[in-house]
Design a protein around this nucleic acid. Structure first.
Lengths: 142, 142
DNA sequence: AACCAATCTGCTAATGATTTTCAATATAGA
DNA sequence: TCTATATTGAAAATCATTAGCAGATTGGTT
């Protein structure tokens, strides 16, 4: 579906910035396009390794940084100790499990727009973090 | 003002949990009660060192963990590489500078209450993260 | 189809933040 | 004051992330 389109945009963005299109880069971005759970770099690495067993963790770190600079992915403010990434760069909110750290997109919008100036800060954007217990962790409680 | 009261609650909580009341613990909590900028552990350490030059960074790490377990302080979901702590455990929102990472409390409330169940998550609470450029960084732009 | 310059990659070592280990010390209750 | 137990400081260990470098790939040229 629009995964194809997104990959096309990525190729385009690389060309535009003089970046080379390597299988590793494509693979990293594909993993991010596929997953809904806001994976860590380690998660992405494990996924990419299935296809390219020789890929290096350092390359995955470098690639997510590149993708972020291209504006194709975002860091997600997180709970645990590792950074998580999100290929959905449109405005949306997150649902965070306080037990296991799972992060999902919230499927509704809050129709609220912040003032452009709050307490002297020049405001860019906002995001809502909703904390709770995910269905999987609830099941474990019994 | 109610810093006294909060310290009293802390003493009480320690007694209740069989934790000893040490000058280091009190000092760490006092720093957190005083500061409005959601300091990192390193920040707290530097502040505590003024009073107790021999304090160890490890002790500060241990103490913030203890305080968090007691429910007296909270980790703040963060942007940069170090965890930041907040002695304000009531519901409130944060204003984050995307340049320098400064975090301030937002002085207004959003009168919105999330549903108690969202996409299967049992919702506890939420917080709003507003990103922008703080006055100090704006001044540096000139 | 082979060439070349520039960019990338994988490996390894370095860094920064946080946690653990452990012997010595301080606290709280008897 | 005495003692059991929790806590501390200092140093080593761990985890996530970044940097350095030599060899391999990419993409534009012949």
């Amino acid at each position: 579906m629009d995964r194809k389109k997104k990959l096309g945009q990525f190729i385009e963005a690389c060309r535009h910035s003089g970046l080379k299109i390597t299988p590793q880069r494509v693979a990293v971005y594909e993993v991010l396009l596929t997953r809904e759970d806001h994976p860590t770099v380690e998660d992405i690495y494990n996924e990419v390794k299935k296809k390219y067993p020789f890929v290096s963790l350092a390359t995955v770190y470098r690639t997510v940084e590149t993708l972020e600079e291209l504006g194709l992915i975002r860091k997600v403010a997180y709970w645990g100790s590792s950074v998580r990434y999100d290929a959905n760069t449109s405005d949306h909110h997150h649902l965070i499990c306080v037990q296991c750290g799972a992060i999902r997109d919230v499927e509704f919008c809050l129709d609220w727009t912040p003032p452009t100036n709050i307490q002297g800060y020049r405001v860019h954007k906002y995001s809502l973090h909703i904390y709770g217990v995910c269905p999987v962790c609830q099941a474990k409680e019994n």
